[in-house]
Amino acid sequence: MTMIFGIPVQALMGQLLVGLINGSFYALLSLGLAVIFGLLRVINFAHGAQYMLGAFTALLLLTMGGVNYWLALILAPLIVGLFGAIIERTMLSRLYKLDHLYGLLFTFGLALAIEGTFRYFYGASGMPYAAPGALTGAVNLGFMFLPIYRGWVVIASLIVCLGVWFLIEKTKLGAYLRAATENPTLVQSFGVNVPLLLTLTYALGAGLAAFAGVLAAPVYQVSPLMGSNLIIIVFAVVVVGGMGSILGAIVTGYLLGVVEGLTKVFYPEASNIVIFVIMAIVLILRPAGLFGKDA
């Protein structure tokens, strides 16, 4: 058996893949957080709950309406995005003129309420969601077996991340968004409907979280609490990356996922906390984060 640093290649590659998959979710979620924060200046604590909502929507669409995975991958983000838009319009938008901490507290309450409701109706245990037939099985890469669905997760998240990056950095709508981030009053005076832009942005962020949730459903179990511990890790990812840059959020997400996977190989006891440790080190050396612009 081939060994690298005294570790079998299969184990190393296996954990690297697990890390890459976790990294895909970190990247998708921290991207959504960064997009929302960039324009709304709200840290969306409900992001984990929206991720869970995405997975649940896919599951319920399947069990109640017989909607398959591929359609759910499009429908669930739309439904959760709409839900997000309603929340933003009716409640969250009232808090913009206050201290930003109120937005954090509001979305924290929202997350508790959503997760509590689902736990009440569906219990705390996980429910399986089968991967679509086309993506089951595995391919032999020579040095290891790659389950096809896991490969798909990495590719799908990469495509979506790059798509969002393109939308924000290269399109006209994205230019409005970036301009509104810089100076909302001025952009509004040019006749751009900034409040609508804010609603759309929140819906986009929520939709991204839901997309990640649908992707995650066949990998992890669908459970009401699947997002609540994840979101704290994603917060750490966002602090490490700095919220100034979209690309920074994506890169940091993948990077930390891989680091976490490798830690599982070399020092498993620390794999739960390695991201937090990195966060602490980055804060000491570079408080603005790796890609952050603000001091």
Binding site: R94, Y102, L105, F106, G109, L110, L112, A113, E115, G116
Partner: peptide
């Protein structure tokens, strides 16, 4: 009761932040 406290906690949180700061 088997009614989860978190639902109430969450809603109270939202109400406090919105109208009862």
């Amino acid at each position: 009761s088997d009614f989860p406290v978190t639902i109430i906690t969450g809603v109270v949180f939202m109400v406090c932040v919105l109208v009862f700061r």
